[in-house]
Write a protein that binds this DNA or RNA. Structure first.
Lengths: 113, 113
DNA sequence: GCCACTTGTGAACGACTGCTCATATGTGCA
DNA sequence: TGCACATATGAGCAGTCGTTCACAAGTGGC
């Protein structure tokens, strides 16, 4: 039990990890990232493909960019975004793969918050 | 680009996935889950090991329980919790392993929200 | 230079989240 | 039975989050 406390990563590391998961916790951002799994896309195409407003997509991408999850390449008046973080790609792939043939969680069960 | 839209999981699946990540997005819950990686623990030990109030731990566990991330075993006046979801365990292991020898994200860089 | 288009930004608002305090429920011991 | 302990729960509050609206900035075509 004391050993458990010793095994816990330091506070900063846990916060970072939580922030990482937090970026993946929103359906809008998740959709954007899943779309980007296939390769780079520009903002307007992302908005169209994910059914979100361009402004909303821009806000989301700004956040993801700030955390270096996506990277941008500018060409003319377009901005092409791509996944920049292999770590997030693995997390996404793992989650999607598991979700494909087995509902990961109990999908809430009447006892949710 | 049309193919991308077709590849996107349906809305419900993305919501579920987001909810899953959302459970891991909070440092308090994350600490509890990491502590539980080693095996089951009772509420008061969890509170002690993670430096949180027992009430707060109980609330967090209730949420995790509702989503079947943890399972409970009662013994006397104690309640022993354990990880109930292999999926989450893999996510956690992967994230921790990567974090161990390479900061996953840019740890925010002055351009955060 | 002007206009349409694409993207980025800020403010504001509603909704949600996590925490804390108070209290209830249940268990073991004397 | 009475009390201390472990856990659970509800209400309330403060803080955060995501979305939307309005507009600014930069680019390419005419």
């Amino acid at each position: 039990m004391e050993a458990v406390r010793a095994d816990l990563p330091d506070a900063e590391a846990v916060e970072e990890l939580g922030a990482t998961f937090g970026l993946l916790a929103d359906a809008s951002r998740l959709r954007l990232l899943i779309a980007l799994l296939d390769g780079e896309m520009c903002v307007c195409d992302l908005a169209d493909a994910c059914g979100q407003s361009e402004s909303g997509v821009s806000h989301a991408l700004r956040l993801l960019r700030a955390h270096r999850v996506v990277a941008v390449r500018r060409s003319g008046r377009r901005a092409f975004y791509r996944l920049a973080d292999a770590h997030v790609r693995m997390l996404l792939d793992l989650a999607l793969a598991h979700h494909a043939h087995a509902t990961p969680l109990g999908t809430i069960d009447g006892d949710a918050r």
